[in-house]
Design a protein around this nucleic acid. Structure first.
Lengths: 216, 216
DNA sequence: GCCGAACCGTAACGTACGGTACGGTCTTTT
DNA sequence: AAAAGACCGTACCGTACGTTACGGTTCGGC
Protein backbone atom coordinates (compact mmCIF):
# COMPACT_ATOMS: atom_id res chain seq x y z
CA UNK A 1 0.00 0.00 0.00
CA UNK A 2 1.31 3.40 -0.87
CA UNK A 3 0.98 6.06 1.77
CA UNK A 4 0.64 9.69 0.76
CA UNK A 5 3.73 11.76 1.61
CA UNK A 6 3.43 13.58 4.91
CA UNK A 7 5.24 16.64 3.56
CA UNK A 8 2.99 18.46 1.15
CA UNK A 9 4.10 20.96 -1.46
CA UNK A 10 3.15 23.97 0.56
CA UNK A 11 4.21 23.50 4.13
CA UNK A 12 7.65 23.98 5.56
CA UNK A 13 9.83 20.94 6.25
CA UNK A 14 10.68 20.19 9.86
CA UNK A 15 14.21 20.56 11.13
CA UNK A 16 14.86 16.86 10.70
CA UNK A 17 13.47 16.95 7.20
CA UNK A 18 15.66 19.92 6.40
CA UNK A 19 18.64 17.89 7.50
CA UNK A 20 17.62 15.27 4.97
CA UNK A 21 17.35 17.88 2.23
CA UNK A 22 20.73 19.21 3.23
CA UNK A 23 22.09 15.72 2.76
CA UNK A 24 20.57 15.57 -0.70
CA UNK A 25 22.21 18.85 -1.62
CA UNK A 26 25.60 17.87 -0.31
CA UNK A 27 25.44 14.56 -2.15
CA UNK A 28 24.40 16.31 -5.32
CA UNK A 29 27.32 18.69 -5.14
CA UNK A 30 29.93 16.15 -4.13
CA UNK A 31 28.97 13.02 -5.98
CA UNK A 32 26.91 14.47 -8.77
CA UNK A 33 25.71 11.23 -10.13
CA UNK A 34 25.37 8.90 -7.17
CA UNK A 35 22.19 10.42 -5.87
CA UNK A 36 20.57 7.16 -4.87
CA UNK A 37 17.98 6.78 -2.17
CA UNK A 38 20.32 4.49 -0.30
CA UNK A 39 23.08 7.10 -0.41
CA UNK A 40 20.72 9.80 0.85
CA UNK A 41 19.51 7.62 3.69
CA UNK A 42 23.06 6.79 4.70
CA UNK A 43 24.23 10.40 4.49
CA UNK A 44 21.25 11.66 6.46
CA UNK A 45 21.33 8.77 8.94
CA UNK A 46 17.73 7.96 8.37
CA UNK A 47 15.92 4.98 6.99
CA UNK A 48 14.69 4.68 3.46
CA UNK A 49 11.27 3.92 4.84
CA UNK A 50 11.22 7.36 6.39
CA UNK A 51 12.27 8.97 3.13
CA UNK A 52 9.35 7.40 1.33
CA UNK A 53 6.98 8.23 4.12
CA UNK A 54 7.95 11.88 4.08
CA UNK A 55 8.51 12.55 0.41
CA UNK A 56 6.51 9.92 -1.39
CA UNK A 57 9.08 8.83 -3.92
CA UNK A 58 12.39 9.87 -5.40
CA UNK A 59 10.93 12.67 -7.47
CA UNK A 60 9.14 14.02 -4.44
CA UNK A 61 12.39 14.13 -2.54
CA UNK A 62 14.16 15.95 -5.36
CA UNK A 63 11.30 18.40 -5.79
CA UNK A 64 11.28 19.15 -2.08
CA UNK A 65 15.01 19.75 -2.21
CA UNK A 66 14.72 22.14 -5.12
CA UNK A 67 11.84 24.03 -3.52
CA UNK A 68 13.64 24.31 -0.23
CA UNK A 69 16.91 25.54 -1.72
CA UNK A 70 15.01 27.99 -3.92
CA UNK A 71 13.30 29.42 -0.86
CA UNK A 72 16.67 29.95 0.81
CA UNK A 73 18.11 31.83 -2.13
CA UNK A 74 15.28 34.33 -2.01
CA UNK A 75 16.89 36.02 0.93
CA UNK A 76 18.13 39.36 -0.41
CA UNK A 77 15.72 42.24 -0.61
CA UNK A 78 15.84 45.18 -2.93
CA UNK A 79 12.52 46.82 -2.24
CA UNK A 80 13.36 50.54 -2.10
CA UNK A 81 13.16 51.88 -5.61
CA UNK A 82 15.70 54.57 -5.99
CA UNK A 83 15.63 58.03 -7.41
CA UNK A 84 19.18 59.02 -8.21
CA UNK A 85 21.62 57.52 -10.65
CA UNK A 86 24.22 56.47 -8.10
CA UNK A 87 21.75 54.44 -6.07
CA UNK A 88 20.29 52.96 -9.20
CA UNK A 89 23.71 51.89 -10.34
CA UNK A 90 24.38 50.35 -6.94
CA UNK A 91 21.13 48.44 -7.03
CA UNK A 92 21.85 47.04 -10.46
CA UNK A 93 25.40 46.16 -9.52
CA UNK A 94 24.15 44.44 -6.41
CA UNK A 95 21.75 42.39 -8.45
CA UNK A 96 24.47 41.46 -10.89
CA UNK A 97 26.85 40.41 -8.14
CA UNK A 98 24.22 38.30 -6.45
CA UNK A 99 23.26 36.63 -9.66
CA UNK A 100 26.83 35.83 -10.68
CA UNK A 101 27.55 34.50 -7.23
CA UNK A 102 24.50 32.28 -7.34
CA UNK A 103 24.96 30.79 -10.79
CA UNK A 104 28.62 30.07 -10.17
CA UNK A 105 28.03 28.33 -6.86
CA UNK A 106 28.44 24.55 -6.80
CA UNK A 107 24.96 24.18 -5.36
CA UNK A 108 23.33 26.07 -8.19
CA UNK A 109 25.32 24.16 -10.78
CA UNK A 110 24.35 20.81 -9.33
CA UNK A 111 20.73 21.85 -8.94
CA UNK A 112 20.43 23.14 -12.47
CA UNK A 113 22.07 20.05 -13.86
CA UNK A 114 19.58 17.92 -12.01
CA UNK A 115 16.64 19.99 -13.20
CA UNK A 116 17.87 20.02 -16.79
CA UNK A 117 18.35 16.29 -16.78
CA UNK A 118 14.85 16.00 -15.43
CA UNK A 119 13.45 18.31 -18.08
CA UNK A 120 14.49 15.74 -20.67
CA UNK A 121 12.13 13.19 -19.28
CA UNK A 122 8.71 14.75 -18.79
CA UNK A 123 8.08 13.80 -15.22
CA UNK A 124 7.94 16.20 -12.32
CA UNK A 125 8.57 19.81 -13.14
CA UNK A 126 11.91 20.52 -11.51
CA UNK A 127 12.94 22.79 -14.36
CA UNK A 128 9.86 24.90 -13.83
CA UNK A 129 10.58 25.25 -10.14
CA UNK A 130 14.17 26.28 -10.77
CA UNK A 131 13.13 28.79 -13.41
CA UNK A 132 10.38 30.25 -11.26
CA UNK A 133 12.69 30.77 -8.33
CA UNK A 134 15.78 31.73 -10.30
CA UNK A 135 15.47 33.51 -13.60
CA UNK A 136 11.85 34.65 -13.18
CA UNK A 137 12.11 35.57 -9.52
CA UNK A 138 15.06 37.86 -10.12
CA UNK A 139 13.21 39.38 -13.07
CA UNK A 140 10.23 40.18 -10.91
CA UNK A 141 12.38 41.70 -8.24
CA UNK A 142 14.37 43.81 -10.64
CA UNK A 143 11.39 45.14 -12.52
CA UNK A 144 10.31 47.70 -9.89
CA UNK A 145 13.85 48.98 -9.78
CA UNK A 146 13.94 49.46 -13.53
CA UNK A 147 10.54 51.07 -13.61
CA UNK A 148 11.39 53.39 -10.77
CA UNK A 149 14.48 54.35 -12.76
CA UNK A 150 12.29 55.11 -15.72
CA UNK A 151 9.87 57.13 -13.61
CA UNK A 152 12.80 59.15 -12.36
CA UNK A 153 13.93 59.81 -15.91
CA UNK A 154 17.13 57.83 -15.48
CA UNK A 155 16.29 55.00 -17.86
CA UNK A 156 14.57 54.78 -21.20
CA UNK A 157 12.88 51.63 -22.45
CA UNK A 158 9.52 50.54 -23.67
CA UNK A 159 9.26 47.14 -22.10
CA UNK A 160 10.90 46.46 -18.76
CA UNK A 161 11.06 42.75 -19.54
CA UNK A 162 13.09 43.38 -22.67
CA UNK A 163 15.40 45.71 -20.81
CA UNK A 164 15.85 43.18 -18.08
CA UNK A 165 16.71 40.43 -20.50
CA UNK A 166 19.49 42.53 -21.95
CA UNK A 167 20.83 43.18 -18.48
CA UNK A 168 20.59 39.49 -17.77
CA UNK A 169 22.64 38.71 -20.86
CA UNK A 170 25.28 41.32 -20.12
CA UNK A 171 25.71 39.94 -16.62
CA UNK A 172 25.65 36.23 -17.23
CA UNK A 173 27.14 36.08 -20.71
CA UNK A 174 28.45 32.54 -21.20
CA UNK A 175 29.10 31.80 -17.55
CA UNK A 176 26.21 29.51 -16.71
CA UNK A 177 26.26 27.32 -19.80
CA UNK A 178 30.01 26.85 -19.54
CA UNK A 179 29.79 25.84 -15.91
CA UNK A 180 26.88 23.50 -16.57
CA UNK A 181 28.85 21.81 -19.34
CA UNK A 182 31.74 21.22 -16.99
CA UNK A 183 34.09 24.00 -18.04
CA UNK A 184 36.48 24.90 -15.24
CA UNK A 185 35.60 28.57 -15.10
CA UNK A 186 36.53 30.25 -11.84
CA UNK A 187 36.30 33.81 -10.66
CA UNK A 188 39.39 35.45 -9.28
CA UNK A 189 38.91 37.53 -6.12
CA UNK A 190 37.06 40.69 -7.02
CA UNK A 191 36.30 39.53 -10.50
CA UNK A 192 32.61 39.13 -9.84
CA UNK A 193 32.45 42.69 -8.58
CA UNK A 194 34.31 43.96 -11.64
CA UNK A 195 32.12 41.97 -14.03
CA UNK A 196 29.01 43.23 -12.28
CA UNK A 197 30.23 46.80 -12.57
CA UNK A 198 31.08 46.39 -16.24
CA UNK A 199 27.71 44.85 -17.02
CA UNK A 200 25.94 47.62 -15.12
CA UNK A 201 27.84 50.32 -16.95
CA UNK A 202 27.11 48.70 -20.26
CA UNK A 203 23.44 48.42 -19.39
CA UNK A 204 23.33 52.08 -18.44
CA UNK A 205 25.05 52.97 -21.67
CA UNK A 206 22.32 51.16 -23.58
CA UNK A 207 19.30 52.13 -21.52
CA UNK A 208 20.37 55.13 -19.46
CA UNK A 209 19.24 58.64 -20.16
CA UNK A 210 21.70 61.50 -20.00
CA UNK A 211 21.03 63.15 -16.67
CA UNK A 212 20.71 66.61 -18.17
CA UNK A 213 17.71 65.29 -19.94
CA UNK A 214 15.09 66.77 -22.15
CA UNK A 215 11.97 64.73 -21.71
CA UNK A 216 10.44 63.84 -25.04
CA UNK B 1 36.62 -10.28 -24.28
CA UNK B 2 36.15 -6.65 -25.13
CA UNK B 3 36.94 -5.64 -28.68
CA UNK B 4 38.16 -2.16 -29.42
CA UNK B 5 35.60 -0.04 -31.25
CA UNK B 6 36.09 0.02 -34.98
CA UNK B 7 35.15 3.70 -35.22
CA UNK B 8 37.96 5.78 -33.78
CA UNK B 9 37.66 9.35 -32.57
CA UNK B 10 39.17 10.83 -35.68
CA UNK B 11 37.76 9.11 -38.74
CA UNK B 12 34.45 9.71 -40.36
CA UNK B 13 31.56 7.32 -39.72
CA UNK B 14 30.32 5.29 -42.66
CA UNK B 15 26.89 5.89 -44.13
CA UNK B 16 25.42 3.05 -42.12
CA UNK B 17 27.03 4.35 -38.97
CA UNK B 18 25.66 7.80 -39.68
CA UNK B 19 22.22 6.27 -39.92
CA UNK B 20 22.75 4.87 -36.43
CA UNK B 21 23.84 8.28 -35.13
CA UNK B 22 20.80 9.81 -36.76
CA UNK B 23 18.68 7.32 -34.87
CA UNK B 24 20.36 8.35 -31.63
CA UNK B 25 19.62 12.01 -32.35
CA UNK B 26 16.00 11.39 -33.23
CA UNK B 27 15.51 9.30 -30.11
CA UNK B 28 17.15 11.98 -28.01
CA UNK B 29 14.88 14.66 -29.38
CA UNK B 30 11.67 12.65 -29.27
CA UNK B 31 11.96 10.51 -26.20
CA UNK B 32 14.50 12.48 -24.25
CA UNK B 33 14.97 9.98 -21.55
CA UNK B 34 14.55 6.58 -23.15
CA UNK B 35 17.92 6.56 -24.80
CA UNK B 36 18.69 2.92 -24.14
CA UNK B 37 20.92 0.77 -26.27
CA UNK B 38 17.99 -1.46 -27.03
CA UNK B 39 15.91 1.48 -28.22
CA UNK B 40 18.73 2.72 -30.44
CA UNK B 41 19.20 -0.72 -31.96
CA UNK B 42 15.51 -1.01 -32.62
CA UNK B 43 15.22 2.45 -34.12
CA UNK B 44 18.27 1.96 -36.31
CA UNK B 45 17.33 -1.60 -37.22
CA UNK B 46 20.64 -2.94 -36.18
CA UNK B 47 21.79 -5.33 -33.51
CA UNK B 48 23.17 -4.31 -30.17
CA UNK B 49 26.20 -6.40 -30.92
CA UNK B 50 26.96 -4.14 -33.85
CA UNK B 51 26.57 -1.05 -31.71
CA UNK B 52 29.13 -2.32 -29.27
CA UNK B 53 31.42 -3.43 -32.04
CA UNK B 54 31.36 -0.02 -33.68
CA UNK B 55 31.24 2.31 -30.72
CA UNK B 56 32.70 0.34 -27.86
CA UNK B 57 30.13 1.17 -25.21
CA UNK B 58 27.26 3.50 -24.52
CA UNK B 59 29.49 6.49 -23.85
CA UNK B 60 31.34 5.86 -27.08
CA UNK B 61 28.07 5.93 -28.97
CA UNK B 62 27.00 9.17 -27.34
CA UNK B 63 30.38 10.79 -27.91
CA UNK B 64 30.33 9.78 -31.57
CA UNK B 65 26.86 11.29 -31.87
CA UNK B 66 27.92 14.56 -30.33
CA UNK B 67 31.05 14.78 -32.46
CA UNK B 68 29.14 14.03 -35.60
CA UNK B 69 26.39 16.54 -34.96
CA UNK B 70 28.97 19.15 -34.02
CA UNK B 71 30.77 18.62 -37.30
CA UNK B 72 27.52 19.16 -39.17
CA UNK B 73 26.79 22.44 -37.43
CA UNK B 74 30.13 23.85 -38.48
CA UNK B 75 28.82 24.49 -41.95
CA UNK B 76 28.57 28.27 -42.20
CA UNK B 77 31.64 30.23 -43.16
CA UNK B 78 32.44 33.81 -42.34
CA UNK B 79 36.01 34.06 -43.49
CA UNK B 80 36.14 37.44 -45.24
CA UNK B 81 36.92 40.06 -42.67
CA UNK B 82 35.16 43.21 -43.60
CA UNK B 83 36.20 46.80 -43.80
CA UNK B 84 33.07 48.88 -43.76
CA UNK B 85 30.49 49.25 -41.08
CA UNK B 86 27.56 47.89 -43.06
CA UNK B 87 29.32 44.64 -43.87
CA UNK B 88 30.56 44.35 -40.31
CA UNK B 89 27.06 44.76 -39.03
CA UNK B 90 25.79 42.16 -41.44
CA UNK B 91 28.47 39.72 -40.34
CA UNK B 92 27.62 40.17 -36.70
CA UNK B 93 23.92 39.88 -37.36
CA UNK B 94 24.51 36.73 -39.36
CA UNK B 95 26.42 35.23 -36.46
CA UNK B 96 23.70 36.17 -34.05
CA UNK B 97 20.97 34.67 -36.20
CA UNK B 98 22.89 31.46 -36.67
CA UNK B 99 23.59 31.16 -33.00
CA UNK B 100 20.00 31.81 -31.94
CA UNK B 101 18.77 29.32 -34.51
CA UNK B 102 21.16 26.69 -33.27
CA UNK B 103 20.54 27.02 -29.55
CA UNK B 104 16.78 27.05 -29.99
CA UNK B 105 16.73 23.94 -32.17
CA UNK B 106 15.38 20.76 -30.58
CA UNK B 107 18.55 18.93 -31.50
CA UNK B 108 20.77 21.39 -29.71
CA UNK B 109 18.54 21.38 -26.68
CA UNK B 110 18.55 17.59 -26.45
CA UNK B 111 22.28 17.43 -27.05
CA UNK B 112 23.12 20.01 -24.43
CA UNK B 113 20.83 18.34 -21.92
CA UNK B 114 22.60 15.08 -22.50
CA UNK B 115 26.04 16.65 -22.19
CA UNK B 116 25.07 18.54 -19.04
CA UNK B 117 23.70 15.42 -17.45
CA UNK B 118 26.93 13.73 -18.34
CA UNK B 119 29.00 16.53 -16.86
CA UNK B 120 27.50 15.69 -13.49
CA UNK B 121 29.10 12.29 -13.48
CA UNK B 122 32.74 12.59 -14.42
CA UNK B 123 32.94 10.06 -17.19
CA UNK B 124 33.49 10.85 -20.83
CA UNK B 125 33.80 14.48 -21.72
CA UNK B 126 30.65 15.20 -23.69
CA UNK B 127 30.39 18.65 -22.16
CA UNK B 128 33.86 19.48 -23.38
CA UNK B 129 33.03 18.35 -26.89
CA UNK B 130 29.85 20.40 -26.98
CA UNK B 131 31.64 23.47 -25.64
CA UNK B 132 34.53 23.10 -28.07
CA UNK B 133 32.24 22.86 -31.06
CA UNK B 134 29.62 25.32 -29.85
CA UNK B 135 30.56 28.21 -27.66
CA UNK B 136 34.30 28.12 -28.32
CA UNK B 137 34.08 27.38 -32.02
CA UNK B 138 31.86 30.37 -32.63
CA UNK B 139 34.18 32.50 -30.53
CA UNK B 140 37.13 31.51 -32.66
CA UNK B 141 35.26 32.21 -35.84
CA UNK B 142 34.02 35.58 -34.71
CA UNK B 143 37.37 36.79 -33.43
CA UNK B 144 38.89 37.58 -36.84
CA UNK B 145 35.77 39.55 -37.70
CA UNK B 146 36.04 41.61 -34.54
CA UNK B 147 39.74 42.19 -34.97
CA UNK B 148 39.32 43.18 -38.58
CA UNK B 149 36.72 45.63 -37.38
CA UNK B 150 39.20 47.03 -34.92
CA UNK B 151 41.92 47.25 -37.56
CA UNK B 152 39.53 49.21 -39.72
CA UNK B 153 38.84 51.59 -36.87
CA UNK B 154 35.22 50.52 -36.57
CA UNK B 155 35.45 48.88 -33.19
CA UNK B 156 37.24 49.69 -29.97
CA UNK B 157 38.14 47.09 -27.39
CA UNK B 158 41.18 45.83 -25.62
CA UNK B 159 40.47 42.11 -25.55
CA UNK B 160 38.52 40.51 -28.35
CA UNK B 161 37.49 37.68 -26.06
CA UNK B 162 35.88 40.08 -23.62
CA UNK B 163 34.13 41.89 -26.43
CA UNK B 164 32.88 38.63 -27.85
CA UNK B 165 31.51 37.52 -24.51
CA UNK B 166 29.43 40.66 -24.27
CA UNK B 167 28.09 40.05 -27.75
CA UNK B 168 27.36 36.47 -26.78
CA UNK B 169 25.37 37.65 -23.79
CA UNK B 170 23.44 40.27 -25.74
CA UNK B 171 22.47 37.68 -28.31
CA UNK B 172 21.64 34.70 -26.14
CA UNK B 173 20.36 36.47 -23.03
CA UNK B 174 18.25 33.92 -21.12
CA UNK B 175 17.20 31.86 -24.14
CA UNK B 176 19.37 28.80 -23.72
CA UNK B 177 18.97 28.26 -20.01
CA UNK B 178 15.20 28.67 -20.26
CA UNK B 179 14.95 26.16 -23.06
CA UNK B 180 17.21 23.70 -21.28
CA UNK B 181 15.05 23.93 -18.19
CA UNK B 182 11.96 23.13 -20.21
CA UNK B 183 10.45 26.58 -20.60
CA UNK B 184 8.21 26.74 -23.64
CA UNK B 185 9.95 29.64 -25.31
CA UNK B 186 9.29 29.93 -29.02
CA UNK B 187 10.33 32.45 -31.60
CA UNK B 188 7.67 34.04 -33.73
CA UNK B 189 8.48 34.36 -37.45
CA UNK B 190 11.11 37.02 -37.92
CA UNK B 191 11.77 37.30 -34.23
CA UNK B 192 15.21 35.75 -34.44
CA UNK B 193 16.17 38.24 -37.11
CA UNK B 194 14.87 41.13 -35.00
CA UNK B 195 16.62 39.89 -31.88
CA UNK B 196 19.84 39.44 -33.81
CA UNK B 197 19.58 42.97 -35.17
CA UNK B 198 18.87 44.40 -31.74
CA UNK B 199 21.80 42.57 -30.19
CA UNK B 200 24.09 43.71 -32.98
CA UNK B 201 23.05 47.31 -32.62
CA UNK B 202 23.54 47.16 -28.89
CA UNK B 203 26.95 45.62 -29.34
CA UNK B 204 27.94 48.35 -31.78
CA UNK B 205 26.70 50.95 -29.35
CA UNK B 206 28.97 49.52 -26.70
CA UNK B 207 32.02 48.69 -28.77
CA UNK B 208 31.65 50.69 -31.95
CA UNK B 209 33.76 53.77 -32.60
CA UNK B 210 31.86 56.95 -33.14
CA UNK B 211 32.32 57.37 -36.85
CA UNK B 212 29.84 59.33 -38.83
CA UNK B 213 27.71 56.23 -38.99
CA UNK B 214 24.62 55.64 -36.96
CA UNK B 215 21.75 53.38 -37.76
CA UNK B 216 18.31 54.89 -38.13
C1' DG C 1 5.88 0.44 33.97
C1' DC C 2 3.21 -0.13 29.57
C1' DC C 3 1.55 1.08 24.74
C1' DG C 4 1.88 2.76 20.46
C1' DA C 5 3.91 5.83 17.21
C1' DA C 6 7.96 7.24 14.95
C1' DC C 7 12.08 5.97 13.32
C1' DC C 8 16.59 3.38 12.24
C1' DG C 9 19.16 -0.30 9.94
C1' DT C 10 19.05 -3.87 6.86
C1' DA C 11 17.33 -7.35 4.08
C1' DA C 12 14.53 -8.52 0.26
C1' DC C 13 11.94 -7.86 -4.20
C1' DG C 14 11.21 -6.43 -8.98
C1' DT C 15 12.64 -4.26 -12.84
C1' DA C 16 15.28 -1.73 -16.14
C1' DC C 17 19.25 -1.64 -18.61
C1' DG C 18 24.23 -2.14 -20.04
C1' DG C 19 26.70 -5.61 -21.92
C1' DT C 20 27.46 -10.52 -23.99
C1' DA C 21 26.48 -14.79 -26.54
C1' DC C 22 24.49 -17.30 -30.19
C1' DG C 23 21.89 -18.95 -34.14
C1' DG C 24 20.51 -17.57 -38.70
C1' DT C 25 20.96 -14.78 -43.08
C1' DC C 26 23.23 -12.18 -46.52
C1' DT C 27 27.41 -10.58 -48.94
C1' DT C 28 32.07 -10.95 -50.35
C1' DT C 29 36.15 -13.49 -51.41
C1' DT C 30 38.68 -17.17 -53.44
C1' DA D 1 30.51 -23.55 -54.52
C1' DA D 2 32.59 -23.34 -50.27
C1' DA D 3 34.45 -20.58 -46.65
C1' DA D 4 34.65 -16.31 -44.05
C1' DG D 5 32.95 -12.46 -42.30
C1' DA D 6 29.46 -8.74 -41.34
C1' DC D 7 25.31 -8.13 -39.45
C1' DC D 8 20.35 -8.84 -37.54
C1' DG D 9 17.25 -10.49 -34.00
C1' DT D 10 16.74 -12.32 -29.67
C1' DA D 11 17.74 -14.50 -25.59
C1' DC D 12 20.50 -14.21 -21.65
C1' DC D 13 23.42 -12.47 -17.60
C1' DG D 14 24.74 -9.39 -13.86
C1' DT D 15 24.11 -5.43 -11.46
C1' DA D 16 22.28 -1.17 -9.80
C1' DC D 17 18.61 0.99 -7.85
C1' DG D 18 13.79 2.30 -6.64
C1' DT D 19 10.59 0.55 -3.59
C1' DT D 20 8.73 -2.37 0.10
C1' DA D 21 8.87 -5.13 4.31
C1' DC D 22 10.38 -6.22 8.89
C1' DG D 23 12.65 -6.61 13.37
C1' DG D 24 14.60 -3.69 16.90
C1' DT D 25 15.05 0.80 19.52
C1' DT D 26 13.66 5.26 21.41
C1' DC D 27 10.34 8.23 23.36
C1' DG D 28 6.11 10.71 24.69
C1' DG D 29 1.61 9.89 26.90
C1' DC D 30 -1.16 7.40 30.43
Amino acid sequence: MTTTPSLTETDEPTARQQAVLEAVLSLMVEEGDQLTMTAVARRASCSKETLYKWFGDRDGLLAATVRWQAARVRAGRYDRPTLDIATLRDSLKGFAETWLTVISSPTSIALNRLAIGHAASRKSNLGGIVLANGRFAIGERLRPVLEAGREAGLLAFEDSETAFRSFFGLVGRDVQIRLLLGDSLTFAPGEIARDAARATDQFLTLYGRPTTDRRA
